[in-house]
Computed example of a mutant assay.
Amino acid sequence: MGVLNLSLPLFLYPFTNAQILNVTLKFWFKYAIIIFIIIIPLLNQGAYHLFWGPIFLISCFIPILPRKWKFICTIILVIMLFIDLGARSQVIKSAIILLIACGIYLQRFISSNLIRLIHGACYVIPVILLYLGISGIFNIFKDLSSPHQGKYIEKKMVNGQLIEDDLSADTRTLIYQEVIESAIKHNYVIWGRTPARGNDTTLFGDNFENLKMGKNERFMNEACHINIFTWLGLIGVILYTFFYLRASYLAIYKSNNIYIKYLGVFIAFRWLYGWIEDVNNFSISGIAIWMIISIGISNEFRSMDNKRFKNWILNCLPY
């Protein structure tokens, strides 16, 4: 599992080719809706973003899609936005995609400097917040959620039972604490603990996976970058960051079309969000992230003008 999860960047090799990515997306869109209808009873209620990864890529370009696909993508995003507020990752991703689509629609009124400012902020802000959190000065998860604890409760039916979900709950501080303390205790801060191991845990020590392995370790957490840190250490986090940084920089500063510039902002956001969630597992959702990064890195995509890229997007839609 660890090797598969860390092999995701290998998708850069095929997906930087516009034809290969086009065929892949066209095939996925042709059958995705049918498959989704069939397997919907098996999916977690509300957590549909794990299945609809490629929709996030296409939905960035809602302003240039045909009317039918504008309707389909907008409906899917709105459903994910409101069907389950407790699925906070899904809500946030859907909202950001709609903002990017609005940005493309209003591109005449948005300067290149603003795009570059947002891009830089996505990389600087997490580093500052991580330092403040580790030093004990300011914990964004705890300090922002504490004043609102218990104020935003969503009630929903799960398996026939009424469940109350606190939308303001801090679900990350203890995970970060366990990951960092485990790395210091076992001296794998620099090089990591290898993809075969996880971080020491007391929060999740009694789950099936840990009982099966006979270790009090959590192999994978919800946040992408802290998994990379556990498996490959700071060296791995830095190298992993270069993929996002290189792709978003080239997309924003070295692209011949406006659409990829906005995609570069989304790539930068996904790196920022990787400190909160965006688990990097070998799945449709995980692969879709590398489709997006591939477009930013690809010389072929970045050399396209607005018209050529629009035609490529339209050709990804099967009907």
Rank of each mutant, 00 (worst) to 15 (best):
A247S: 13
F243C: 05
I252V: 14
A251G: 04
F242H: 03
H225K: 10
G236H: 06
G236Y: 08
F243S: 03
E222L: 14
S248P: 05
H225M: 13
G236D: 05
I228S: 01
T241R: 02
L250P: 00
Y249H: 11
S248Y: 10
L250K: 06
L250E: 11
Y253I: 01
N227F: 03
G233P: 06
N221W: 09
K215S: 09
E217H: 08
I238C: 03
N216C: 04
L234M: 14
A247P: 01
F219G: 02
S255L: 11
L234C: 10
Y244I: 03
M220K: 14
H225S: 10
I238K: 01
N216M: 12
G233I: 09
L245T: 07
G233M: 07
G233R: 08
M220H: 12
N227W: 06
R246N: 14
F243Y: 15
K215M: 15
G233T: 08
Y244L: 02
L250A: 02
W231V: 06
M220L: 13
T230L: 07
R246I: 12
T230K: 12
F219H: 14
L234H: 03
A247F: 07
V237D: 01
I228D: 03
I228L: 07
I235C: 08
I228P: 02
N221A: 13
Y244A: 00
F219D: 02
F243K: 00
T241C: 04
F242I: 13
Y240F: 15
R218S: 13
N216A: 11
R246A: 12
S255K: 07
F242D: 06
R246H: 12
N227E: 05
K215H: 12
K254E: 13
F229A: 10
K215L: 15
A223M: 13
C224I: 12
I252K: 00
I235R: 09
L245Q: 05
Y253D: 01
V237S: 04
S255Q: 12
L239F: 15
I228G: 03
S255D: 10
A223T: 12
F229G: 06
T241Y: 12
I235K: 10
S255E: 11
I228F: 04
I235P: 04
F229M: 11
L234S: 11
N227A: 10
R246Y: 14
E222N: 14
N221T: 13
K254V: 01
E222R: 09
N221L: 05
W231Q: 14
L232K: 12
R246M: 13
N227P: 07
G236C: 03
S248I: 05
N221P: 00
G236P: 03
K254L: 09
E217Y: 10
K254T: 00
I226W: 10
L250D: 09
R218P: 01
E217I: 09
M220A: 13
M220E: 09
Y249K: 04
N221F: 11
K215R: 15
R218Y: 04
A223Y: 05
A247L: 05
V237F: 03
N227Q: 10
E222W: 05
L239T: 08
C224N: 15
A251K: 05
H225V: 07
